[in-house]
Amino acid sequence: MIPKRIGILIPSTNTSVEADFKWVTSKAVTAHSERLAIPDGTMTPAFLDQMNQDLAAKVASVASASMDLIAYACTSGSFYRGPAWDEQVHDLVQRTAHVPCVTTSTAVMDAFQALDVQRISVITPYPQWTNDKLAAYYGQQGMDVLAVHGDVRAAAQGHRAINDQDPDDIIQFALDHFDPDAQALFCSCTAWRAVECVTALEAALGVPVITSNQATIWAALRQLDMLHAAQPLGRLFTRSAVC
């Protein structure tokens, strides 16, 4: 059997997406990354503009390996210009690669809808301007964003360091900042090792926990009708499997 191939477009400083795909998926699915060059340091809109400037060429490169789907796996890179930009990214990828595309920001929104949640509490490793953009994006999509808390420790040494924050620190930050009126917790950023926190946080908080990488993997596998090829990762996978 030929495995389903998923192309992943990721920031060049990100080392978490590939590891999470490998951890969650089986041999029936393989993931193949293309890196989008971005400088390290304090994240700015200009950094994201630079990362996206040669997006079409990067899509064509990974698509040349005969992908079944391509995932644009950068949360802030798909929401920082608003919903219209996310749609542009989606359309550019599909038009260039001639295969389906998922973007992380839309995958997260689809996850909210699949879990029938409206009120969300959000934690991130982002600076404040990015948190504001996130709240605006999901607010425009109809979500009730109760709170967005950014852990400034994560990127204190530059955004590449987000990949190195211990999952136990993410769990504690979530427990300290979760809004009890929320129906779900969203841990944003594909560089954050939040996938490793899902089981513990759902047990502690009693609500669904959605992370950027978890939602991206789920959306990609659902598009390919391959959810059975993944280990269940939180309520997102177990609930949607029976819906």
Rank of each mutant, 00 (worst) to 15 (best):
G82E: 02
L205Y: 11
A241W: 10
A230L: 05
I10G: 13
H228Q: 11
P180S: 03
R160C: 03
V108N: 04
A111P: 04
R193M: 03
I120Q: 08
I2F: 07
A107Y: 09
A31N: 11
V99E: 06
Q141M: 15
T44I: 01
V145A: 10
A230S: 13
L233W: 12
P127C: 05
S212I: 09
T106R: 14
L69E: 02
L55W: 08
I8T: 12
A84N: 06
N14T: 10
F237I: 14
F178D: 01
A37G: 05
H228P: 00
A191Y: 07
P39V: 00
P180R: 10
A161C: 07
I8P: 04
S66Q: 14
I10V: 15
A111R: 08
C197H: 02
T25K: 02
A28P: 00
F79S: 04
K133Q: 08
T211C: 14
Y80G: 00
T211P: 12
R5D: 02
A57R: 06
D20I: 12
C189T: 01
M109F: 13
A194I: 07
E196V: 05
L224G: 03
F47H: 11
A147L: 12
K133R: 14
A60Q: 14
A135Q: 13
C243A: 11
Q50N: 10
A31E: 11
F237T: 12
L205T: 12
A161N: 13
T124G: 08
G82V: 01
P125M: 12
G150Y: 09
A37V: 11
G139A: 09
T25Y: 03
F186S: 08
A136E: 15
